[in-house]
């Protein structure tokens, strides 16, 4: 009941934002957080759950953005079709990137994703017939009623809620545990039968899908994209949002995204110190709170419902055990 009440309250706050936000810029910022979150929610399954350190998702974001701009702009596709195609192309590129690189051990995988992001930027410059090269492309906006600041905010909010729901389902059901096993104990994952490579790959392809969608939304908000829109720092930023938020949590990385996007923008002195601010926050979290800010909330909840700690002896119940074993026998 309490959980439903909190969810309803959060929904009311988010939906009504256009009426109480201070100005258009704040609304724009909220929509930007939403677009980032669409990507980060998917990336969270890769980084936070399966433990694969991708720093190159900005490459997939760029692919989604250009796919949308080219299909909806140059080729004048229906924008919704173009939006869906951006997600599909993102997923396909995720597959093509994941197939060779997800077999690599951690550090080398991170390097492969870094290389991927750099290659995408260079390709965008090289294929100037398609992408406009350094000059860039203008991005068609969504049709009414999504062409206003509030309209596009609601659209992005809706997509972000759906993506969050999908990742929440993955996280709370067996696949979430399987991915965490891949992250925390490969040996256990294998012993219980988790197909390690396959699990990493599907999570990665899913993150490609959300990165492609996020890219299209991001592009619409920018209304004009050039290769400079997709600097490598942005990829690092996505990664840092998850690490600061906490691995294996959804709320944590979401708060990480909100804080890291909004704080430097809302306070002018912090904006000048943008990278310094990220660096400091990252350092503090890694040193003091290695499980991220999501863990703070968990600890708070645990305090509210104190557990009976202290040890009780292990007392096997033979009859019950025999019943439980026999119930499952093949």
């Amino acid at each position: 009941m309490k959980r439903v009440a909190i969810l309803l309250f959060a929904a009311a706050v988010l939906v009504s934002l256009p009426w109480w936000a201070g100005d258009q810029y704040q609304l724009h910022l909220a929509a930007l957080i939403g677009a980032y979150w669409v990507l980060i929610a998917g990336l969270n399954l890769v980084v936070g759950f399966s433990g694969q350190l991708s720093v190159g998702h900005v490459g997939l974001l760029a692919i989604g953005a250009y796919a949308y701009a080219i299909l909806a702009g140059t080729h004048e596709w229906n924008v919704w079709l173009a939006l869906a195609a951006s997600g599909g192309i993102g997923a396909l590129c995720g597959l093509l990137l994941g197939l060779p690189s997800l077999r690599l051990p951690g550090f080398y995988f991170a390097m492969a994703t870094l290389a991927f992001a750099l290659i995408v930027t260079e390709l965008v410059l090289a294929l100037d017939g398609l992408t406009g090269g350094g000059v860039g492309l203008s991005v068609p906006e969504f049709p009414a009623p999504f062409d206003t600041a509030a309209g596009s905010y609601w659209l992005i909010l809706g997509i972000a809620v759906i993506v969050t729901w999908l990742t929440w389902n993955v996280a709370r059901l067996m696949w979430g545990r399987g991915l965490i096993a891949v992250r925390d104990s490969m040996v256990t994952a294998q012993a219980v039968g988790v197909p390690v490579f396959h699990a990493k790959l599907v999570a990665f392809v899913f993150s490609g899908l959300t990165a492609g969608l996020g890219g299209a939304l991001f592009a619409v908000m920018q209304s004009y994209i050039t290769p400079d829109t997709f600097l490598f720092e942005l990829g690092l930023f996505f990664f840092v949002c998850i690490i600061i938020g906490g691995r294996g949590s959804i709320l944590g990385p979401f708060l990480g995204t909100v804080v890291l996007t909004a704080l430097p923008e809302l306070s002018a002195p912090l904006a000048k110190l943008g990278n310094f601010f990220y660096g400091l926050l990252l350092l503090l979290v890694v040193l003091l709170l290695p499980e991220g800010i999501g863990r703070l909330f968990q600890i708070g909840l645990e305090r509210l419902r104190p557990q009976r700690l202290g040890s009780m002896p292990i007392e096997p119940q033979p009859a019950q055990l025999a019943l439980a074993i026999k119930a499952g026998q093949r």
Binding site: L166, N169, M174, G178, G193
Partner: peptide
């Protein structure tokens, strides 16, 4: 529960969409 992985027939997509089987 993770010990019962091999009884998980639902794929990633079925889980993401919280199908009744999952």
């Amino acid at each position: 529960m993770i010990g019962g992985w091999t009884d998980t027939r639902s794929g990633f997509l079925a889980s993401a969409l919280a199908f009744a089987t999952a």
